[in-house]
Simulated assay, not measured.
Amino acid sequence: MGNRADYQTFASENSQKLASAIERGIPDTLRGMVWQLMSASKDPELEATYIRLIKETSPHEKAIMRDLGRTFPHHAFFTDGQGIGQENLFNVLKAYSLHDPQVGYCQGLPFVVAVLLLNMPDEEAFSLLVRLMHSYDLRGHFLPEMPKLQLRLFDRLIEELLPVLHLHFVRQGIKSSMFCSQWFLTLFSYRFPLEVVYRIFDNCLASGIEAIFGFALALLQQNEEKLLAVKFDDLVAFLNAQIVDTYKTEADGEAVWRTDDFVRDATALRITPFMLDTYAHEYNEMVRQRDAHLLEVDFLRRSNRNLSTQVNALEASLAQLNQEHVNILNELVKARLQSEELERELVRYKLLYAESVHKTEDALSSHRLSTSTSISNGGSSKRPSLQSMISGFTKSSSAS
């Protein structure tokens, strides 16, 4: 298996034999080469890109420097701050942050890169990292939306394969993000010893990054009784600090890891691509319905704003009409008051007229009465002549 073509030929002709060999563990001396062959990551162009990128400046350099000392601090390759291990780790992380600005730099990446650097030179580690991120979709673990899908798939696997534990987690309010995010982001390299981590990488590179689900579920399955016996606070603490100890034993006062058992338990779960595709479809459909609901809510909000604007305009028009109505009513009241005033004046004039008429009639009646009286007293029935009236008037004037 000296080159990629030889490996591909061997893998296609001896797939079962190769799978069994990988499950038993790749020899340490061959691991770096086999990883590159399995992933087809050997790429002179990418290696040349790496050489160019390490000479440039990245905006993430301070964050990378801050995390270097936290990455395998007890491993001899990384303990010396000025050593080749931390320098290579810094260079690969910086180069990738420039190569993939959308991801840039994220916590968790140093552990993945460190595992690669322990098995190959830095330029080859960079090429394999790019391959892991893009072809194996490890990149999806670091993008904003994709981790939700990974956690959703993991939740559905727990529900399907460990239903009692799933119900216990639901009742205790335990979410998978509380304990397995570090597992997925670092491919278990944050908590497990390297001898175990190497075997996990073996299987991920051979079978796909989905192999991590098997290892995660194996941990839960082997600790199910303990997990069912504790509640929220103790659950979170156990899941984050003690769950890995289930595959650790003591021999001659030293910790011994049952790596073969761990790999065997993980692969025995038989998590098929069909299962993951089904759960991914469920999740995507849920997201589609959620987005459709959000669009509908947004449409209703916009419609509500438009209706509110129309209502405000109608209320303003109504207020204006009310004011005009009030003004008209005021004018009508004034006109009515003026009409009533004129009616009162008319009534007064009618009364005065009636009184005048009445007085005239009284005067005429008195005159008729005096005339009739004089006739009855022997007076001439003839009307006095103008001459007699004047002479009478003259006599009375002389007498006086």
Rank of each mutant, 00 (worst) to 15 (best):
E341Q: 15
D67Q: 08
K248V: 15
F142Y: 05
L89P: 06
I51P: 06
A363Q: 01
Q86L: 14
D100K: 04
V326A: 11
I243F: 00
T360G: 09
A206I: 04
G2C: 08
L89V: 08
A114V: 09
K148T: 15
A95Q: 01
G214L: 07
N14C: 03
K350A: 06
R52H: 10
L194K: 06
Y50T: 03
A399D: 13
F90L: 07
K248T: 14
P147D: 07
A76Q: 14
R152P: 07
L352T: 10
N88W: 00
D122Y: 02
Y279N: 01
T29L: 13
S303D: 05
G108M: 01
I200W: 04
S397P: 02
R66T: 14
H99L: 02
G25C: 05
M275Y: 00
L314G: 04
V34F: 09
R4I: 14
A40K: 04
K94V: 07
L217P: 03
K148Q: 14
L165F: 07
M65L: 15
A216Q: 02
S374G: 11
Q387V: 11
E282T: 13
A21M: 06
E159P: 11
E224Q: 06
S176M: 05
G378R: 10
V357N: 11
A19G: 01
M38D: 03
R66S: 15
R70L: 12
A241H: 15
Q8V: 11
G69H: 08
V311S: 00
E285H: 13
G392W: 12
G25A: 01
M120Y: 04
L364F: 08
S400R: 09
K395T: 15
Q320F: 10
D43R: 00
V196W: 02
N377L: 14
L161G: 02
A21S: 09
S181K: 04
V236A: 04
D137H: 10
N3R: 05
R171W: 02
L295K: 07
D28E: 12
Y353E: 13
L46I: 10
L369K: 08
H141Q: 09
Q16V: 02
A237S: 13
L194G: 06
E225N: 10
F10K: 01
I390P: 13
S380C: 08
T360Y: 09
E324R: 13
L329T: 13
L30Y: 02
C106D: 00
L185K: 03
E45Q: 13
D277Y: 09
G32D: 03
